[in-house]
Computed example of a mutant assay.
Amino acid sequence: MFETWDATKRIAEAKRLTERLVDHAHYLLDIRENNVIVVYSDQLAKQIPRSYAANAFNLFREAMHQIEIVRLSALWDQAQIDNETILTVIELVDNEEVIKTLAEAARAQYARVPEPMDPNEPAEEREFALKFLQEINAKRGEEHANNAVAGLRKAIADARAIKSSSQLKSIHHLRHKHVAHYLTQTKEERSGEIIAPMKVGDEKPVLEASLKIMELLYCWVNGVGISFEESQKIDKKCARELWSNCKFEIVDRSKPTASMLRNR
């Protein structure tokens, strides 16, 4: 779909989409850290006794888990011009001219050589210092360009692997058939493909791989290093601050309590 686009247009759109992907990832990580407590621990569940409240709580947990699945699955929707997905960015950058252009941009970061230190030094020494700095920067620039090529190719290969993975297929299948849509059969089932049911926890390796791919894309497409690790720490702290201070007290209204008896 991007065959007619030149490298400059492809890169501009890839930069824009990668920025959006990072925003989507931050929201997904917020949900994830809340689900670590709500869905994957008994911190809240053990406070709920056998009661009608348990039904409501189970529904709440299921809804929290489903929105995480929906958001993660959306990151991996098919590449389309209007889709802000990892695969759209991959289609944009999986092009030799694009990779070459991005490698040149990485190399150019080391093209500028600072002026030699002391202008009062003899011209001969300043010329030697300048040549030395040029050689150092040229070497660094070449290494940076090679890292850009390697990073982009790794992001492309890893994304292709995730796209065809059984975990992602199971996640997509759950979303399409039971969460986002009510389908009797998915497109894959109609074609005879057997998709294994998603197991709780299948989303974790897909999410972790997605973050690493986005970090590579942001670094070598947008030219800025990024790490989700600090964001995850903040999200974890916020989730703990809420749920560690959230206490359930379920009262059976069909039985009189001491306060109710006093008020009679």
Rank of each mutant, 00 (worst) to 15 (best):
M1F: 07
K9A: 15
R10V: 01
R16H: 10
L21T: 05
L28Q: 08
L29P: 01
D30Q: 11
D42Q: 08
Q43Y: 03
A45I: 01
Q47V: 04
R50E: 15
S51G: 07
Y52F: 11
Y52V: 14
Y52L: 14
N55E: 09
L59Y: 08
L59P: 02
Q66G: 00
I67K: 06
R71T: 11
S73C: 10
A79R: 00
Q80L: 08
D82L: 01
I86W: 01
T88H: 00
V93I: 15
N95I: 02
E97P: 03
V98Q: 04
V98Y: 04
L102D: 00
R112E: 09
V113C: 02
P116L: 02
D118W: 11
E121A: 13
R126P: 07
R126V: 08
E127P: 01
L130Q: 03
L130P: 00
L133F: 03
L152K: 01
R153W: 07
A155D: 07
R160F: 12
R160E: 14
R160A: 14
I162W: 01
Q167G: 05
I171L: 08
H173F: 05
H173C: 03
L183S: 04
T184Y: 10
Q185M: 12
E188N: 04
G192H: 10
A209K: 13
S210T: 15
I213T: 06
C219Y: 10
W220K: 01
N222P: 02
G223N: 07
V224D: 13
S227V: 11
Q232I: 15
K233I: 15
K233P: 00
D235K: 12
K237T: 12
K247I: 14
E249H: 13
E249M: 14
S259D: 13
L261A: 12
R262K: 15
N263Q: 14
